[in-house]
Computed example of a mutant assay.
Amino acid sequence: MELKDLHVVITGATGGLGAALSLALSAKGAIVCLVGRDAVKLHALQQQVIAQGGQSHIVVADLAQPNMAAQVLKQSLREMGHVDLLINNAGVIEFTEFARQTEVSIDNMVHTNVTATLLLSKAFVEYFVERGRGHLAFIGSIFGSLGFPHFATYCASKFALHGFSQALRRELVDSNIGITYIAPRAIATPMNDDRTNAMWQASGQSVDDPQQVADKIVRALQKNQQELFIGQPQSFFAWLNGLAPRLVNIGLKQQTALAKRFL
């Protein structure tokens, strides 16, 4: 995929990975449309894009609100003229015991990570089909292939996104619409609260820099990769989980006990 002059819509643009990805794509010559809820943060990121010689547009939107998918597509087209690539990056996470997680939190996570993403993807797929080409990228997680203790609802949402990306890719196999699924491990972003960061540190889990992850995603898009799993040994365990989940259970038993100290 040639990134120069590519028109890209990025949801969750002002988050740690979203911002890094927006700047990395802009540095390659892409024209980025930054989608998020906070207008102040969006304008600040836009100024960063401009400062490095890039072009960007802004769409202020809360994807949790009804009928927002059509509005985001409409505003993106108004700002950019056309769209070549949608990057579904917006998402939420919570480190908690499932039995203690509130219904509001569960509903919000499933709606943000799954329902809103699917509805937005549907709107853009319809547009790409009409246009005759396009590409969708989904920022998933290693936890979309590896059920991890105390992230049960988050894992459920990312497993759903992984399965959706596979199904949609197969459904569109005879079209000019591409699908890329990206599965990072933990990233150093504001999404992780202090308890989560303390737990990662105590367990010795690697936490990646957003810029390094963004650079790998950019390379994957340039190569039109279907899937990208980032980080070892987490990627290996995600693969092993599909073959021998009981072995992974044993490996995660100590992690489960350790995590309880930080709940």
Rank of each mutant, 00 (worst) to 15 (best):
K74W: 04
A51Y: 01
L77A: 08
T117G: 05
A123I: 00
R37K: 12
E126C: 01
G36Y: 01
R131Q: 15
I50T: 13
H82L: 10
K41R: 15
L118W: 05
L118F: 07
L25C: 03
G134M: 06
K122V: 00
G144V: 02
V92G: 14
F151T: 13
A51I: 00
N88A: 10
N113T: 03
V49R: 03
A90P: 13
V83W: 07
A69E: 07
A20S: 15
Q48E: 11
S145I: 01
F143Y: 15
K41E: 10
V83E: 10
Q75A: 08
V40M: 09
L136D: 04
T117W: 02
Q52D: 02
V40D: 15
R78G: 08
S141M: 09
K28R: 14
R133N: 10
V92M: 13
V35G: 05
R133C: 08
I50F: 10
G132L: 03
N67D: 14
Q101I: 04
N113A: 01
A90K: 14
G134Q: 10
Y127F: 07
R100F: 05
F151S: 12
A123V: 00
A156D: 08
R100L: 14
L120C: 02
A160F: 05
E126V: 00
G140N: 15
N89D: 11
D38W: 01
Q46F: 00
R37Q: 08
N88C: 14
G81A: 12
A137R: 01
V92S: 13
L25I: 02
I106P: 06
L17A: 09
G81K: 12
T96P: 02
K74H: 11
Q48D: 13
V125H: 08
G132W: 03
G16R: 15
A61P: 08
S26L: 06
V92L: 11
V104I: 09
L34W: 07
G140A: 08
G91N: 11
A116Q: 03
V83K: 10
F148W: 15
L77E: 12
R100T: 06
Q65D: 06
G18M: 13
M80Q: 15
S26T: 07
T96W: 06
P149E: 07
M68I: 06
G53V: 04
L86S: 12
V49W: 03
G91C: 13
Q52C: 01
V60K: 12
L161V: 11
D107T: 05
Q55T: 09
L146K: 04
